[in-house]
């Protein structure tokens, strides 16, 4: 079985998406709270706390500098954790995938539905953050509204990354490795809390090649500051290409794991 076989998909993908949406909506009050509160915590601690010692960063106020990073990190975390720990629980403990593939829905459609749901969570969480950041006058409207559709695209990337790890994790605790070795470094070194240019040049290149969050932060910062450049197309092309590759890979890896 090939790792890069294109999956055959039908509208059943949305039935899987709907299942996750229904579960999410059952407890929506709790689910909407974290994306609302988390950016406030970071803003107060880093933006308004630490930030009082920083006049400007890259020519702008520190809270304005980190606001897009907070959105990007939220996008990364929502999709990644949904498609690692969330999907793992559904796959292994709840046997939800087994139940679904006993119906006309195929395993490819189940996994794709999960990925789209992961991306949707990124979109939801990013969208909730926008009014908070707008209230502190940290982002420029209407440009920043483009964050909403972009959150879905970027979320799909992190969902696919997460699903690849889910497919190869022997148990749920091994999912902690990608979290500490991949997500945490990205959180710190992707141009999030200080400009990428401060890093040694080889590490800058490494970040551009191997840390997806770098590209996401770059695009979202351009959108929230209404400061577009042509390099964004490179960022977007990187995201779309890697998303496509990892999407196909994750579906095949999961198929390998579940269909024996």
């Amino acid at each position: 079985m090939s790792y890069f076989k294109l999956p055959k998909l039908t509208t059943f993908v949305w039935k899987v998406w709907l299942r996750n949406r229904d579960v999410f909506m059952k407890t929506y009050k709790v689910n909407f709270l974290p994306p609302f509160i988390e950016p406030l915590l970071y803003l107060f601690a880093l933006g308004f706390g630490l930030g009082t010692y920083i006049d400007t960063m890259d020519g702008i106020s520190y809270p304005r500098f980190i606001a897009p990073a907070l959105i990007s990190i939220s996008i990364m975390n929502s999709a990644f954790f949904e498609c690692t720990f969330g999907s793992y629980v559904r796959m292994y403990y709840q046997k939800t995938f087994d139940a679904i593939i006993a119906t006309p829905v195929s395993i490819e459609e189940v996994i794709t539905g999960e990925l789209l749901w992961g991306a949707t969570k990124s979109l939801i969480n990013a969208t909730i953050m926008l009014p908070v950041l707008t209230a502190f006058k940290l982002i420029e409207l209407p440009h920043a509204l483009l964050v909403i559709p972009f959150a879905f695209i970027a979320g799909f990337l992190f969902a696919s990354i997460g699903m690849c790890f889910t497919a190869i994790s022997p148990n749920i605790s091994t999912l902690n490795y990608p979290t500490f070795l991949f997500i945490t470094p990205m959180f710190l070194f992707s141009g999030t809390f200080f400009p990428l240019q401060l890093l040694p040049e080889p590490i800058q290149y490494f970040a551009l090649i191997a840390l997806p969050l770098t590209h996401v932060v770059s695009i979202i910062r351009a959108l929230t500051l209404a400061n577009l450049s042509s390099f964004l197309l490179v960022n977007l092309a990187w995201i779309l290409t890697v998303s496509l590759i990892l999407f196909v890979l994750s579906v095949n890896l999961m198929k390998k794991r579940l269909i024996v």
Partner: peptide, 8 residues
């Protein structure tokens, strides 16, 4: 194995 959806 019972695989009813515990979320529902």
């Amino acid at each position: 194995e019972n695989n009813l959806d515990p979320d529902f």
